[in-house]
């Protein structure tokens, strides 16, 4: 687990350094603006780029190495709606299947998030497509789950076994995020994002607590902090 943590930190540092280095190089190499360009820059109102960027969450796949019972697929779509403001939609699904255990547990979750990111980086030179953003999302997840053949140990009153039929569970939450997207080749991006989640509403399930909620994390955590890694491709419409 420590090795994976160090790997994540190193990956974050490398990607952050790349963006900072590009900013430094661009400012050194950038030619002096002429008076006319300066005048036109101050008059021109920055306009948003016309594109849709499709992302795929790599960390959802990597999770299977640490927790093979949980399989999750997650994608993202974002587009610049105002200058430096990006509308975001994220969605996906997750399956939890207990295998090779003395009990059966199955769960499926479908989830979606909608929100916005704001880019903090100046958009000049060759790194103008990179972004360091803060964002907020509203999210909703619908889970169905069932459990059977499970044993609950109670040394004093006696053990009991149980079977619980398939039931639904709803969860609404708010996410706060911050992260970096770096263009590594033309229109191809790598990015990471740190997210924390705050529940705002959940349906009550009287008999069984969900184990893992796709898009949110383990049910027992009240405000989980998670790092996501993305690979993205930008479709330009200009």
């Amino acid at each position: 687990m420590n090795i994976s943590r160090y790997f994540l930190i190193i990956l974050l540092l490398i990607m952050s350094k790349q963006v900072i280095s590009q900013n430094d190089i661009d400012s050194e190499d950038e030619p002096q603006s002429t008076l006319n360009e300066a005048v036109s820059d101050t008059l021109a109102k920055p306009t948003p780029d016309s594109f849709v960027r499709i992302g795929f969450d790599l960390s959802a796949v990597a999770r299977q190495f640490f927790e093979p019972e949980v399989r999750q697929f997650e994608f993202s779509l974002d587009s610049e709606v105002y200058y430096n403001w990006f509308a975001i939609f994220e969605g996906g699904f997750a399956n939890v299947r207990a295998t090779e255990r003395p009990f059966d547990y199955n769960a499926q979750t479908y989830f979606g998030r909608i929100g916005a990111d704001y880019n903090l980086l100046p958009r000049t030179g060759t790194d103008k497509n990179n972004s360091l953003s803060l964002g907020i999302r509203y999210a909703y997840g619908l889970s169905t789950h069932e459990a059977s053949n499970f044993l609950i140990r109670n040394d004093y009153w006696g053990d009991s076994d149980g079977n619980l039929e398939r039931t639904n569970f709803h969860l609404h939450w708010i996410e706060f995020s911050g992260g970096l997207k770096t263009e590594i080749f033309q229109n191809f991006y790598l990015g990471w994002m740190i997210k924390t989640r705050v529940r705002i509403f959940e349906s009550r399930n009287p008999e069984l607590t969900p184990y893992y909620l796709g898009g949110y994390g383990h049910e027992k955590r009240r405000a989980p902090v998670m790092i996501h890694y993305y690979i993205l491709y930008k479709l330009n419409f200009n």
Binding site: F103, A147, F150, L151, I152, L164, L208
Partner: peptide
């Protein structure tokens, strides 16, 4: 009933 973890069960 709560699934504590895959290792520990319910």
């Amino acid at each position: 009933a709560t699934l504590i973890s895959m290792e520990c069960g319910f």
